[in-house]
Design a protein around this nucleic acid. Sequence first.
DNA 1: TTATCTGCAAAGAATTTGCAGATAT
DNA 2: ATATCTGCAAATTCTTTGCAGATAA
Lengths: 158, 158
Amino acid sequence: MNKVKKQLESYREQFREREYKMTPQRRLILQTLLENKEQHLSAEELHALLKEKDSEIGLATVYRTLELMEDLSIVHKLNFGDGRSRYELCQPHAEHQHHHLVCLRCNRILEVKEDLLQQLETLIEREHGFQIFDHRVSFYGYCSDCQKGGTTGEDANE
Amino acid sequence: MNKVKKQLESYREQFREREYKMTPQRRLILQTLLENKEQHLSAEELHALLKEKDSEIGLATVYRTLELMEDLSIVHKLNFGDGRSRYELCQPHAEHQHHHLVCLRCNRILEVKEDLLQQLETLIEREHGFQIFDHRVSFYGYCSDCQKGGTTGEDANE
DNA sequence: TTATCTGCAAAGAATTTGCAGATAT
DNA sequence: ATATCTGCAAATTCTTTGCAGATAA
């Protein structure tokens, strides 16, 4: 998996540009995020994963690193209304982030690649004179599994 | 302002259907939300407004009432990434909520009436078999004032 | 070398909960 | 009458901060 190494090298460069140091802790956090790309981890979940790797990274460091990387546009901070912030790696080459589908029954979070908000953005920029840099879109409903399923449904979280 | 009274009566009915009681505290909270429709209040801000009216409603009651009203689909819980939840009354007759424009410089939150997500929703329902009930959309950028203004810009919050 | 970074523990902020008395229906 | 609701204070949970020693560049 040379791809991961290359990606880490690219992040190191982003750090250097802003005079931030690439420490073992930061590297391991990035590595873990790369290994869990599809996950939307919270700070505590990430911290738990790091512990499994026998690292002694403190929770405060995890928070500080995530904040820093959000500032560097390496991660996006997300909120799905469950009382904690969640994070995901930015897609380096995507014009915009994808959208999230939050299942109201099993709480799974699915993703959609399609953007299709260009039309709406153009309208907003024209009508409201608001210059858009990014957007966050979540759809709430029932995933296909939960539409079939009985009344209970498994809960993906806790 | 007979309109407000009518609206309160309608909320009372929603409460009754679920066997919740309409207490003076709940009525005053609803009234205050109606008087601040365009505001996106946090629980503490709402609590402060209630205090100005010489009511002795406890903060815990405010939280409990907001939770209850979210469950009744009377209010929407919103998150703009400022570390606290914010609430707004649902638009009773709107198919969907409007969208929010979050200015990254002055932190003002503007609104757009246009929905225009139907096309995207149709695509998602078809391609992903995901049955959509609602969506939350926020756009991040610079409002028209902040595009003109200097480098500082006033901060609408704190 | 030296400014930045880390871990720890303590602090802070938002939200929730337990309980005993009060109150809508 | 009684199940629900309220206010208070304490408890929880998530996140941030101060500090002294450690470390990347």
